[in-house]
Design a binder for these strands. Sequence first.
DNA 1: ATTAATGGTTGACTTAATCAAGAATATCAG
DNA 2: CTGATATTCTTGATTAAGTCAACCATTAAT
Lengths: 156, 156
Amino acid sequence: MTTNAAPPTSGTDRFLAAELAGEASFLIARARSRGSALANDRLAPLGLRVRSYSVLSLACSGLRPTQRELAEFLSLDPSQIVALVDALEKDGQVQRIPDPSDRRSKLIEATPSGAALYARARALTCEAEDVSLGGLSATEKTEFLELLNKAAFPIG
Amino acid sequence: MTTNAAPPTSGTDRFLAAELAGEASFLIARARSRGSALANDRLAPLGLRVRSYSVLSLACSGLRPTQRELAEFLSLDPSQIVALVDALEKDGQVQRIPDPSDRRSKLIEATPSGAALYARARALTCEAEDVSLGGLSATEKTEFLELLNKAAFPIG
DNA sequence: ATTAATGGTTGACTTAATCAAGAATATCAG
DNA sequence: CTGATATTCTTGATTAAGTCAACCATTAAT
């Protein structure tokens, strides 16, 4: 038996001492990488990814977003929304509905099938979130979400 | 004058009521998108991006990481590290040093030029972080970083 | 000494991000 | 109303990022 007193953490723990480990951009990138990998794994059986899931989620919100609004809210390029909605629409989960007040824009709404899919997907992403944030207590989790919200929506 | 009592926030604020707005994966994705866009803009004049910056940062840490360690710590594929180190090395900011204890692996260390570049880059990313997390008070910021750390490094 | 495992590298391939331009519609100035 | 300007969605091109399998050199295990 070697002098193996260290717990089986990770092997790169010594880099926690580096300046980088204190920078938000790095920590967010790493948290996102882990979290979205988890969520994507769980969503895969449903034919969804975190991206398409987020579009489906807003399509299910009853708020009838336009594609432009989806792009802004999700921090994506409008052309990316086109591709995401195309895929969901071809799959019958979502519909493009002509905006009565502006014939340029299209309202994105979930079909019944899409709503059912979302219900299942939502359970999976919540599960993934629980795993992903497993290191946080319940109160820490809510505090974290609150601060994340402020970071994600600066002025608003 | 229309009944425009709402402050000029964003135009998509109504989606804050959607379920999605309470999910960590979405909030993290959005925070990262905003944050890394800010950081990339500031780093661009130095010929860096957040990715290459993070490699340079660890190369400047004095911890002499191997490429494998960089990949693990940064949640990147080893082949991505190759490309990042290639670019930094060709630019003279970083060196591949043969690991005396394992001739397979290479230790990544910053050159003096790389260290100088990092000093300037670090100032810019800190500045970007201040802007990015401008919605948080000082205490909230430290609390946020602490929670982010727990989310980014679950067990460790 | 053979076998298996690891670290770096390359190449192929898929997905994501960025950007410019076009068609349809809406808004605004005069 | 008319012409100029802006907006929405769309397409296409281009670059960056992520994923994966295979290879060589080396190390570790049997």
